[in-house]
């Protein structure tokens, strides 16, 4: 087994463990590269037929490429797709022009809470990685959330030898993170090796000002900025990442607004 094989195998073990333990689970698919890789891993773990629904939290502010990609592959891969939207907040005009923290809370966190209440899932698979952001480095593979969706990172259960926590009554659900041990570069090497489809926003293109840019990380169109890059193929992205020192989320507004915004979002139940 090479390094990528090992990463893949470890993830598949965790995915199968989560399904065995909880059955009533779902997976969050943002259509970004990480959760698309997670979806790919789930397809491999279950021999092509994912036995649980896949959920997209739709803020209504996503790129059109994201919606197109979602609908195409949901069909092609036979996914049971749940689109979760906080319709009321959208109708009332919530948007990033208000307050960014409030917008994320309403359109992401609360949309997720509503969907969880409606479907009563016991565990949620998420494609987060330890290297993404400092605070995410603290996550466990099986990470409990309480009734308020809060994450008590000060008192987390020990995890060793792939023996994970069971769910308790005080928790609404467990977050399961099968890809914590991957890096951004690992993801791209995996995309490259597997010939996995990916939203073309990640590939560089020329802008009217003549500068070539691509998205390193995608979310809502209103809150993501592309970074300068010439990488217009997957191979070039892998080469670029071997050498870059620009932070992955440098184009994401969430991380910059204030010193601890990401931490506050996490504690409030954001992915």
């Amino acid at each position: 087994m090479d390094h990528i094989d090992e990463l893949e195998s470890k993830s598949i073990y965790i995915i199968r463990e989560a399904y065995k333990q909880f059955k009533k689970i779902s997976m969050l698919w943002s259509i970004g590269k990480d959760s698309t890789a997670l979806l790919w891993l789930c397809r491999k773990a279950f021999y092509g037929k994912i036995p649980f629904p896949v959920m997209h939290i739709d803020t209504s502010y996503k790129f059109k490429e994201i919606y197109e990609f979602r609908d195409r592959y949901a069909q092609e891969w036979g996914l049971k797709l749940i689109v979760a939207r906080n319709e009321e907040a959208i109708k009332n005009g919530m948007g990033p022009d208000k307050n960014k923290l409030n917008c994320c809370t309403e359109l992401k966190t609360n949309a997720l809470k509503q969907a969880m209440a409606q479907h009563n899932f016991r565990a949620l698979l998420l494609g987060i990685r330890r290297d993404e952001h400092g605070i995410r480095a603290k996550e466990r593979v099986f990470s409990p959330r309480n009734q308020e969706f809060q994450w008590n990172y000060k008192d987390q259960p020990p995890e060793l030898w792939d023996q994970f926590k069971n769910k308790s009554d005080e928790e609404t659900h467990l977050r399961v993170h099968p890809m914590l041990h991957w890096t951004e570069l690992d993801i791209w090497k995996y995309v490259q090796r597997e010939g996995m489809p990916i939203v073309n926003l990640y590939l560089a293109k020329k802008y009217p000002d003549g500068v070539s840019r691509r998205y390193r990380s995608i979310g809502c169109e209103t809150c993501c900025n592309p970074v300068e890059s010439e990488a217009d193929t997957i191979d070039k992205i892998v080469d670029e990442l071997e050498t870059t020192t620009v932070a992955e989320r440098s184009g994401r507004a969430q991380d910059k607004e204030q010193a601890y915004m990401m931490q506050k979002l996490r504690a409030l139940g954001y992915m």
């Binding site: 330890r130 290297d131 603290k138 990172y153």
Partner: peptide, 8 residues
């Protein structure tokens, strides 16, 4: 340091 963290 409260928890275990990983990086590269």
């Amino acid at each position: 340091t409260i928890d275990t963290a990983q990086t590269f």
